[in-house]
Simulated scan of single mutants.
Amino acid sequence: MTNVIAAQQATQSSTIHVDAAIVAPNCTIQIVSAIHPTPVEYTHCEPHHAIAMQRQRKQAFSTGRYLIEGAEKRFEDIGRVLVLPANVPLEVRAEGGPTQAVRCIFNQDAYARITGLDELVHPNEMVGCLDVKSPRITDTLARLAGEAEAPGFASRVLAEALGTSLMVEIARYVNDLQPRSTIQRGGLARRTHRQIIEYVETQNGTPSLSDLAKLTGLSRRHLSRAFKQTTGQTIYDYVEQVRFNRAANMLADTDLLIKDIAFKLGFTCSSSFSVAFRRACGETPKSFRKRMRPGAPDEIASPLSLAA
């Protein structure tokens, strides 16, 4: 099934294709793909609440801002998961090229009935919805993607249950957001924050909390609290996010064997890497590589393998 949805475009034209879908009473699950101009600038507006998770490798440049009074006026980085409140235009400036995402769409009445909330998010907290960092939300979207692509017994019933839990998780996430103007003191110093980012993004394997505490000279407890207060996510979630992004980039842009990528990322074996990758994005490393590099063979000899 391939339907076509006209996305509202500000400056350049592109088309969103719905490759698979499950329609349940309270929500609709879609796998959508598009090929955008490079770079791309457009404005998108959903008639119903939606949450979307990108499935391609992280773009080098992807920013956006919600066009509503009271929201942040500056363009901010768009993460892997973002929320699209109903009837709120989102202006996007990005790298462009091919994209694919899983999204869950639900109307305002369903959200209000299930959560008891009339408003999805207050305008001055919307910037936190451009980069949603919640493993539970990510896992649920990955399960919904798998169900849409390969429906099983009672898929519609399962999608309805997962969609309902997703609405509750979104409500919890939004409830924990703080406007930037009300963030309390006590977070990380800018230098320490930058030190952690540089270390995590350049190290092979997975740095532990003890490693980062030793690096910064802070206690593990203080570091955990200050990092969460500064970034809105735990150190564990941040490290896993970086590891997934590195995995996606290596699968899409290098000829390394999957087992070599697993080793570089600190996994004990390729099977544990495959399980973790599938949990994070809803597909195996092998299928992700095939989708990003259609002409590539299943496994390509790599320098690490040849040197072993």
Rank of each mutant, 00 (worst) to 15 (best):
G295S: 08
I261L: 01
G295H: 08
S272I: 09
R279C: 04
A262M: 12
P297V: 00
M250C: 04
C269A: 14
F277Q: 03
T268M: 14
A252M: 10
M292V: 09
S272C: 05
C281I: 12
A280Y: 05
F267E: 10
A262I: 06
K264E: 15
N249R: 12
C281E: 03
R291A: 12
K264M: 15
R246C: 02
G266R: 08
F288T: 06
F273E: 01
A296V: 07
K259L: 12
S272M: 08
R289P: 00
R291I: 04
R291T: 10
C281N: 09
A280T: 02
R291H: 10
I258H: 09
A276W: 11
S287A: 13
G282E: 01
P285C: 02
F273H: 03
V275T: 12
S274Y: 06
K286D: 07
S287D: 14
C269D: 15
N249Y: 11
D260N: 15
P294D: 02
M292A: 11
A276P: 03
V275W: 04
P297S: 01
S287M: 11
A247E: 10
N249Q: 12
R279A: 13
S271D: 14
S271G: 01
D260H: 13
K290W: 00
V275G: 02
P294T: 01
N249H: 13
K286Q: 11
S270N: 13
S272E: 11
T268P: 04
I258V: 15
A296Q: 03
N249S: 13
K264P: 00
L251C: 14
A296K: 05
K264C: 12
S272P: 00
G266L: 10
E283A: 06
F267Y: 15
A280L: 04
D253R: 14
F277D: 01
R293W: 05
L257F: 13
I261F: 00
F267T: 02
T284P: 04
K259N: 14
A248H: 01
A252S: 15
C269S: 15
A248R: 14
S271P: 07
S287E: 14
L256H: 14
R278K: 12
P294H: 07
K264G: 04
R293G: 00
A252P: 07
F263W: 14
A276M: 02
F273Y: 09
S271N: 13
R293K: 09
I258G: 06
L265I: 12
G295E: 09
I258R: 07
R279F: 03
S270F: 08
A262Y: 11
A252H: 11
M292N: 06
T254S: 15
D255A: 13
D253K: 15
D253I: 07
C281T: 10
R278Q: 11
V275C: 01
L256C: 09
S272L: 06
A276Q: 07
R278P: 00
T284D: 06
F288P: 05
L257K: 15
A252N: 10
K264F: 09
I258P: 03
T254F: 11
T284Q: 04
V275L: 11
K286A: 11
D260Y: 07
F288C: 08
R278M: 11
A296D: 00
G295W: 06
F273V: 08
S287T: 12
A280H: 08
P294L: 08
P297E: 00
P297A: 00
K264S: 14
F273I: 05
F288D: 05
P294E: 06
A280C: 00
T284K: 05
C281S: 07
